[in-house]
Write a protein that binds this DNA or RNA. Structure first.
Lengths: 170, 170
DNA sequence: ATCAACCGCTTTCATTTTGCAACTGGTTAA
DNA sequence: TTAACCAGTTGCAAAATGAAAGCGGTTGAT
């Protein structure tokens, strides 16, 4: 179950779980892209993960307690992957990663817009988003008084994408 | 210079730079442990990095713009590694990583105390700490009105360590 | 002047991880 | 009946990692 740890440092332990090139990509796609099936994660991500790597990461993330796997009642072969509370609480970390990447790396506009909104919204927005993720993934009852952060992020992304495509078509 | 990127997503680009098991350990040790020489990074870290990996990571981090290397005027063979602004602005990300690790992973008390202070202090403390790092690493003039966050973090760590050693000696 | 400790790495080699491509046995909808 | 789809698995080459020893030069103490 527990392989020996390199040290008890919180940053090190976090790196032991998430410190590779794919684990956070998978979590990002489930969290922000609502990809819940193997094929969706395989085909709809921009980074083109290999199927054996995806299979390995999903298994690892389930073992580490960040995801859980259920059978899809609508299809005997489909599996549904969901975020656990442990993964939902990565929202601040992913928001900071997005903010840093946006500031220092050559991001594309349509993929940076969600990071920008998350950064501008700050911790109150993150908390709203985490609560929505709990509704989506942990079967928590929704709070109808709150507008959906997920929809706001997705709409902003679609808007930039449509504008760039319109500009490219000219 | 620039290898092809997997995508323009800010999270992905950040992972392309920092998504491995050692890069952030090196930055952590320079940032929080003030390790500035190769041998210090090699021998004084809890995780026992191999010398070839350390050499490779230092080279990579210099190339990516997170560190810079200078000759130490006091010793012809010594090199001094310093953080750039790009690395200093990782403080919020490292603080979030520490907070998440502390919440969900089996951290040790003496290594978690700094993460706890950083978390409790929040963004105002992070800003103070970043300003101190600019003084240490970028030769910016210090602000004498501010008490040192670095010293506060280090003192808290030493205190827990001493208490644990006293308890172990009984 | 001598010598041991220290300096930033490099080299070698075994093991592990990654990445690509093809493939599997079964399910579903037309 | 059949074509598309389902979650993966397999085989193999290439790259990354990790442990250990070693390198030529510098330094400070004797």
């Amino acid at each position: 179950m527990d392989e020996a740890h390199r040290s008890g440092c919180p940053i090190n332990l976090t790196l032991e779980v998430l410190g590779d090139r794919w684990s956070l990509i998978v979590i990002r796609d489930i969290m922000f892209g609502n990809r819940r099936h193997f094929r969706e994660l395989l085909q709809k991500s921009d980074e083109k993960i290999a199927s054996n790597i995806l299979a390995d990461r999903l298994k690892r993330l389930v073992e580490k307690g960040l995801l859980y796997r259920e059978d899809d009642p609508s299809h005997k072969q489909k599996a549904i992957y969901s975020l656990t509370e442990m993964a939902i609480e990565l929202v601040p970390l992913l928001a900071e990663m997005g903010a840093w990447g946006r500031r220092f790396l050559p991001v594309s506009e349509e993929l940076a817009i969600r990071a920008e909104l998350l950064e501008k919204g700050g911790r109150p927005l993150w908390e709203d988003f985490m609560q929505e993720l709990r509704v989506q993934h942990l079967h928590v009852a929704p709070d109808p008084s709150k507008p959906s952060v997920f929809e706001r992020l997705t709409a902003a992304y679609q808007e930039v994408l449509a504008r760039k495509q319109a500009a490219a078509a000219e």
